[in-house]
C-alpha cells in the first residue's frame, strides 16, 4: 500500500514529536455502515503513531462497539478521533474529539492537539481556568472547520 505521509513530512513530524512529554492514545472510531474515508484515516493514523514512542492507537467500530461509542459520546459520528492521555493502561478522556478527515490544515491541528494532551496542561489564563473549573452545567463546544 502506498504511504500517505511523504518522507519530508514524516521527518518534520518526528522532530515536532520530540516535544511529547507524556503518552497519548488516539481512539479511532470508524463505521462499516457509513464511512467513506475511514480506511484512509485509519492508514494515516497508523503511519503517524510509529513516529513517537509516546503514541498509541486503538481502532474501533461504532456498530460493533456501541457501549464504547456511547462512553466516548461518538455515537453516529464516524469518523471520530478521540485524543486521550495514557498512563500505563489507564486512559484519561479530556473531552477532545475530532470528527471528520484530518487533512490539510486540520492535520496540523491534530498534531497540535496531540502535543497539547501530551503536555497535560491547558495553557489557559487563570481567569478562564477559574471559570471552567466552576461550571455547573455541561458545556458542549462544536468547532466547525473545513479541510483547506
Amino acid at each position: 500500500m502506498e504511504k500517505m505521509l511523504p518522507d519530508e513530512i514524516v521527518k518534520q513530524i518526528r522532530d515536532v514529536f520530540k516535544q511529547l512529554k507524556h503518552p497519548v492514545e488516539l481512539l479511532f472510531f470508524g463505521s462499516q455502515a457509513r464511512c467513506e474515508y475511514c480506511n484512509e484515516i485509519q492508514q494515516l493514523l497508523e503511519e503517524l503513531i510509529p513516529l513517537s514512542g509516546q503514541l498509541s492507537l486503538s481502532i474501533h467500530d461504532l456498530e460493533q462497539e456501541p457501549d464504547l461509542a456511547r462512553h466516548y459520546q461518538v455515537e453516529g459520528k464516524a469518523p471520530a478521533i478521540v485524543i486521550t492521555a495514557r498512563e500505563g493502561d489507564q486512559l484519561t478522556d479530556y473531552g477532545i474529539r475530532y470528527l471528520g478527515i484530518p487533512s490539510g490544515h486540520e492535520f496540523t491541528t491534530l498534531i497540535q492537539s496531540i502535543l497539547l494532551v501530551s503536555g497535560r496542561d491547558s495553557g489557559l489564563n487563570p481567569q478562564t481556568r477559574a471559570y471552567l473549573k466552576t461550571l455547573t452545567t455541561p458545556l458542549h463546544l462544536e468547532v466547525f472547520v473545513t479541510p483547506t
Partner: peptide, 26 residues
C-alpha cells in the same frame, strides 16, 4: 479549535470539545 480543546482539558467532566469537519458532517 485548539482553544476549545484547551477548555475541555481544564474540566473534561463538564466540557466536551468537538472539532467538526463541515464537509463530512454536512
Amino acid at each position: 479549535m485548539l482553544l476549545a480543546y484547551q477548555m475541555a482539558m481544564e474540566n473534561p467532566k463538564m466540557v466536551l470539545a468537538e472539532g467538526v469537519e463541515a464537509m463530512e458532517f454536512q
